[in-house]
Design a protein around this nucleic acid. Sequence first.
DNA 1: CTCTCTGTACCAACTGGTCAGTACAGATGA
DNA 2: TCATCTGTACTGACCAGTTGGTACAGAGAG
Lengths: 211, 211
Amino acid sequence: MTIKTTESGVKVRGGRSTREAILEAASRLIHVHGYNQTALDDVLRESGVGKGNFYYHFKSKEELGYAILDQIIASFLERTLEPCFADPEGRALAQIRCFFDRVLETQRERNCVGGCPLGNMALELSDVHEGFRARLASVFSAWRERLTLVLRRAQRGGEVSGECRPEAVADFLVASLEGAILLTKLTKDIVVMEQCVAEMKRYLSLFEPRT
Amino acid sequence: MTIKTTESGVKVRGGRSTREAILEAASRLIHVHGYNQTALDDVLRESGVGKGNFYYHFKSKEELGYAILDQIIASFLERTLEPCFADPEGRALAQIRCFFDRVLETQRERNCVGGCPLGNMALELSDVHEGFRARLASVFSAWRERLTLVLRRAQRGGEVSGECRPEAVADFLVASLEGAILLTKLTKDIVVMEQCVAEMKRYLSLFEPRT
DNA sequence: CTCTCTGTACCAACTGGTCAGTACAGATGA
DNA sequence: TCATCTGTACTGACCAGTTGGTACAGAGAG
């Protein structure tokens, strides 16, 4: 399917890009207003897609929700989490600190608005649909897994002391980041986020072997 | 107004207890399903109060929300936060650790369900109504204030080392607890909470003066 | 003491609006 | 000319809030 332009300059979307237009509008709206507060009609108005058209491409609003969630998850893994830990030779603690900074940076870019897309959906939907909860739990679990692996590797290499229990530390780091983002959203003050990241780095330094 | 009982054993509520019945049912439902997901009709069915009656006692659903929130805040301050820090002579770090344990205990009691009532409302409503956001921000701020004070006191007494920046540490502790509760709700696994609390204690030990 | 009057507490039925989802006809292209 | 798309108009459920009225306790007047 190709994208064409009529004489009036209005874009006529082919099949695949209609789906993309919906996803783009929906992910923007859902990020700002939340899933439940985002009416399907708003998504359609924003994306310029008709209702019948929407239901041709999606089975339901719930399916749209899953698609958005998958998109958020993929984007988080590819654009935020994995790049920091790409180098298997890099120093683990430095990579983790770099990851903190990256998360801090996203909050700054967003002016503390919107919070964490994953955390938001987690709180909003985990009670409602088991499917959402499971999917969200899996990404948090991938996140913790990544941190656990890098910590374990560092421990083997002697970069991190033996008293570090990688699973527990990973859980704690994920929780703290999510909490920091929540508190930042609430106070609308980036200083909170900065302080939390600074304290997380201080906490990490606990595991540096004594020189 | 008094509470009376008819010959059939059905309670006829006077003014004040109707309000209480509504608040009780609403706070239970809202804690489980969230504010937006709780229909007014559900609250009314649960509490056995008619709709007109509800609107006699409350201006709107939003006002009910405020009342619930005030109740949650008061309960948190009186029953969870303040008792831990009541003794001005107590050792600060021990009080903070005790507070962690108390929060952990509430999660255990609730079987990891429901998360933190304050955090839930924060995430759900802070974008929607500025009034909710402000009220929530104020309680988190009281919470951080309490921790800041106790840390500062400890610092003066030499119980906590000078490198501790009380405000930053307080922010971090609050954020971490909230994040831990969120992650616990999502994974439905109390071990996550236990590990996070353990790591928070380890972090705290950073500030104990070296012997 | 009794009869009206008044304000509080309460109820059932309804309204108006929103929203997810459906029906279907028209367009478009192989 | 058949399958793939797309827009419009509709449906039914849900839900916050309204309305018009009842029940009844207590106060005051006769």
